[in-house]
Amino acid sequence: MWIQVKLGGPLKRYADSDGGTKAVHADDPLTVAETMARIGVEEDAGELLVIVNDDVVPPSEHGRFTLKDNDRLTLMPRLKGG
C-alpha cells in the first residue's frame, strides 16, 4: 500500500520534493507512529500536528491509528501563536 505524506515547515527536509511531499510504500499496514519512524521524524520533531486525510490524530493515538492505502498523512510543526 501507498501512503501520501505531506511535511510542513522544517520537516520538509524529510520530503522527496520541494513541495514537501513523500510517498511511503509498505507491504503491511502501518500505524502513524510507524510511518513517522519510517520517514525519520520520530526523534527530533517535538510535538507535532498530525492529520490523516482531514482528521486530527492526537498523540495518544499515534501508536494505534492504522493507515489505509492512499491515506494522506500530514505532519506539521506544533501550532504556536504570535
Binding site: 505531506k6 510542513g8 500536528l49 492529520i51 500530514t74 506539521m76 510543526p77 501550532l79 504556536k80 501563536g81
Partner: peptide, 9 residues
Amino acid sequence: AMMESMNTF
C-alpha cells in the same frame, strides 16, 4: 510558520 499549519489544519 503558522500560515502553512493553519491552512492545512
